[in-house]
Amino acid sequence: MENTERYIQALIQGEDQIIQEIYKKIYPKVLAFILYNKGNEDDALDVFHDALMYIIITQKEKRSVILSFEAYLFVICKNIWKKNLKNKVIQTDVLTLEEKETNLSAFILEQQCFEFYIAKFSLLSENCKDILSSYFNGLSYEEITLANAYATVNTVRQRVFKCRSKLIELIKNDKEFQKIIKWGA
């Protein structure tokens, strides 16, 4: 947690030494992940750069609680790379800096949206998180009943409804939602 604050502050201030420390500590793992997942060193450098820029832009706008900087940065890198891999299917040419920037902007907006929903989901009870995870992952009410030893399918249906209503309430009561709803409507 202490390091997290130090790293974020240093990124925003552009402190060379600490940015180098971040690279030294975390970049080898990201490089390994990307090499292992059909990428090369240039891809890894782009992804790491974009992830750091994502943290700078979003944390400048609004500071959020990040428990582990390393884990957070790694997840952001993984998400950027997953998005890039999907784009690569249709895009074979080398991207210009401008195109890279537009991709980064799109990623920032998408990831902000993603983190908003995840934050709301994390406020639910453990039971609600479990049952809604199963539900959104495509399990039927019957399958959830069997897997969790619920009495009847109707009990599960009612429980999903209540948990989902709670989640919707949490989402709609946050003013951030007004921005996100405009993007998708």
Partner: peptide, 22 residues
Amino acid sequence: QLLAIHEQEKISLTNTSYQQEL
């Protein structure tokens, strides 16, 4: 969007408001 997040799919954001934000 909740389904997209759980299925690790891209969240669909494509309208004019989103383009302005971009």
